[in-house]
Design a protein around this nucleic acid. Sequence first.
DNA 1: GTGAAAGCGCTAACAA
DNA 2: TTGTTAGCGCTTTCAC
Lengths: 348, 348
Amino acid sequence: MGVTIHDVARAAGVSVASASRALSGRRKVTPEIAERVSRAAAELGYQPNAVAKALRDRTTGTIGMIVPGIGNPFFTTIVEAVEHQLQETGRDLLLCASQYRPDVEARRLETLLARRVDGLIISPCDIEASVPAVLNAARRVPLVQVDRHIEGGGADWVGVDDDSALAQAVGHVAAGGARTVTFVGSRLMNSSARSRLSGFERAAARAGVNATAPLLGEFTLEWGIEAGRLLLLDGETMPDAVVCGNDEIAVGLVRALRAGGVRVPDDMSVVGFDDVGHATMCDPPLTTVRQPVEEMAAEAVRLLGQVRVSDPRPAQRIAIAPRLVVRETSRPVAAGGANGTEMGRGTA
Amino acid sequence: MGVTIHDVARAAGVSVASASRALSGRRKVTPEIAERVSRAAAELGYQPNAVAKALRDRTTGTIGMIVPGIGNPFFTTIVEAVEHQLQETGRDLLLCASQYRPDVEARRLETLLARRVDGLIISPCDIEASVPAVLNAARRVPLVQVDRHIEGGGADWVGVDDDSALAQAVGHVAAGGARTVTFVGSRLMNSSARSRLSGFERAAARAGVNATAPLLGEFTLEWGIEAGRLLLLDGETMPDAVVCGNDEIAVGLVRALRAGGVRVPDDMSVVGFDDVGHATMCDPPLTTVRQPVEEMAAEAVRLLGQVRVSDPRPAQRIAIAPRLVVRETSRPVAAGGANGTEMGRGTA
DNA sequence: GTGAAAGCGCTAACAA
DNA sequence: TTGTTAGCGCTTTCAC
């Protein structure tokens, strides 16, 4: 346990400096020394101590990431994509979940900073309460927000273009003949909830459809079911279509509607949001807006490399346009012939 | 950027040693010094450097975890549970995905070791190919396997009791009247695939039901669908029930069967395995064996604290008994009255 | 091209 | 109780 570069140097009969140079290969050494050192290292089973290197280099090769919850398949997918991106450059991911609680989030941010991560990727759980901790962290280390973000635009962000997303969703159901559309989403404590609702309202106005009062709860299956029941309750004012804030809501909604005798998509079209995990699993397969997760992750990591804490520049906001994936919970367009599109990506 | 304990000491007019002692609170200092130091620290915005501390203490407060893929909801759930456990003791999680590839796994193991994690929790992707890397890692640092494990019992393990699980599943369908049962699982490159199949065979023998040739593919929805088609193909030898290696397979299977005109559970009972995420989402809700994920995580972390690399003791194997959750894809027992049980845990 | 030595930030002997 | 100092393992000047 614990063979150091000194041991290697001694075994190879050279100074630690030469051993270091030979091992890193970043500076010239005679071939003979290079040979002796690498042989000694192999024989002793030498493994460089990344902690010492980090102290010396003042960089850890580690990126911290905080998401509200790993249980949510959407965040999982982002984490996976980020992990994948980082691996390309030999960096590792220090992962934390804030459990949707700003106090936990702030604490985790502190420990990540203490561990001297080289950068931070975060999806802040609360649009207001997360502000101080996120801003403070951004002052110390490159930080980019992904998906959710704090209000005020004080830090870089990459996410989906909710306006484009909702325009596609609303446009699609309108093309299928819907005249009255309801949005079922989450209460407005996070940025996604807000921008999706406002995106919906703009899109409805533009498409000339009648937007009824939105139903706002949680990003959960349970809320989807409850929203479905709410819709069934006052049956006379049923919309022709429902656009949901995420797939979980949509799946719950579809189930509740069918249980209540409403046929989907014949009586009502339902569109989800995310297209990770659940969408293909459910029956019938969900028409939904696919989040460009892989691109978002790549963009976030790229952005991270550009941020310089020392010389702050105006915060960047990168909104990536998503794509509507038409499956079987929405009515085909009037002309006919809308058919399900297969997912390109497996569920791992 | 970079106020050190020296800065704090100077500002407080004391030595670094006193500053360190005051800050850690682990040794006696006069109240006055304690006061001056903590005030100085607060004013300067001092934040201890965990890297330096780690180098000095030869312990990082960090646990490495490697799972085959974060995309798989089962592994996600374990990761979440482990993260939760670790947080209780102020430790952080360094997360990696092996992408189901032994070579990637070995490489990630190396970097985790280089980062001097205090321990390792791993679900080795391949029962054979993962052996050398896992054994080597176990020699350097406390290591416990969770869920999957390598052959030969060279390292501690905690997972589900597959024998008990399959006995419950087979017993349940047998009680519902099934005489012929098929197992649909994964090819035998990982321990779970193997022990579930053998558990199934033992359980079938014990329950006196006729086990037809197992169908072995992947742990995916797609394979479930394909297996369903296979079953439909030679319709005359259809089993009364199918027990699946995980929920994804089960969901795919149910969908394929229904598409082929087979009613579930009236014509055939289907039982899944895992009960994370998908099981409640699908329609009808899946009868499945619930993995005791939270307990597994707690046990793994506890075990990690007991392992001493210096004095190896016989490897522990902890198999936790799971519970069958009866929902709506299986026929009620002859006497009648099997009804769905709600999940206690949300999908975050 | 190679070696000696300083120093990254911290804590724990060891002295005073 | 407090201060001085060594040293965790590494890389990189700075001389030679």
